[in-house]
């Protein structure tokens, strides 16, 4: 399963160009179960990429990597649990450290926000989208984040407003923007559709 191709959109919508090995340079890799496949493919193309890699897996076990043994593997149950670990790795990292992210947009958005805050330029972060196209959405009204949004509009899991899904994306927060769909005409809500890639 290759990197997902998203339809062209506005400049703030991230694009993911896929992982390319930077050899045995020190690396931090973060992936969910679907994304782990991209790490395996990366290691198959160039085994040396794992020589100095710290892999943080979110919601899956190290066995998903198969025979590709990195220098260290950390298994975490979810993104919240992975966050302090990734932050610590970034904090201890030296210039030249490579960052490979693979999996959902929510995971990549969240970790790339951590990495840019730690001083890594966005253009240097390698990302490959695998798996669900569900989005991590922030309600612009209550600021609550709803994970795994697959429909437009959707209901904010915090304030209950019906929100439409924008392509406008904040790299600082790692979220797409959700805006009240029936603000002007309360109760008049368009038909719910599945989000497309």
């Amino acid at each position: 399963m290759p990197n997902t191709e998203f339809s062209p959109s506005i400049d703030s919508r991230p694009t993911y160009t896929g992982l390319v090995s930077q050899g045995s340079a020190p690396a931090i890799m973060v992936a969910d179960e679907a994304g782990a496949g991209a790490l395996s493919d990366l290691a198959t193309a160039d085994a040396s990429v794992m020589d100095n890699a710290h892999v943080v897996l979110v919601g899956c076990a190290a066995s998903v990597l198969g025979d590709n043994a990195p220098r260290a593997v950390h298994e975490t149950p979810d993104l919240d649990a992975a966050t302090p670990l990734v932050s610590q790795l970034l904090n201890e990292a030296r210039m030249g450290t490579q960052l490979y992210l693979a999996g959902s947009e929510g995971l990549m958005g969240h970790v790339s926000a951590l990495a840019t805050a730690a001083g890594m330029p966005l253009g240097e972060i390698q990302m490959e989208h695998r798996g669900s196209i569900a989005r991590r959405m922030q309600c612009v009204h209550c600021k609550g984040i709803t994970e795994g949004v697959t429909t437009d509009p959707f209901t904010c899991s915090h304030c209950g407003l019906t929100l439409f899904v924008r392509d406008h994306f904040s790299r600082r927060l790692g979220v797409f923007q959700g805006v009240c769909v029936d603000a002007e005409t309360p109760g008049v809500v368009p038909e719910t559709v599945e989000i497309q890639a």
């Binding site: 210039m95 030249g96 450290t97 330029p121 253009g123 240097e124």
Partner: peptide, 10 residues
């Protein structure tokens, strides 16, 4: 810097 993998923007 490039040999050491530094980003160009740094």
């Amino acid at each position: 810097a490039a040999r050491l993998g530094w980003p160009k923007t740094s």
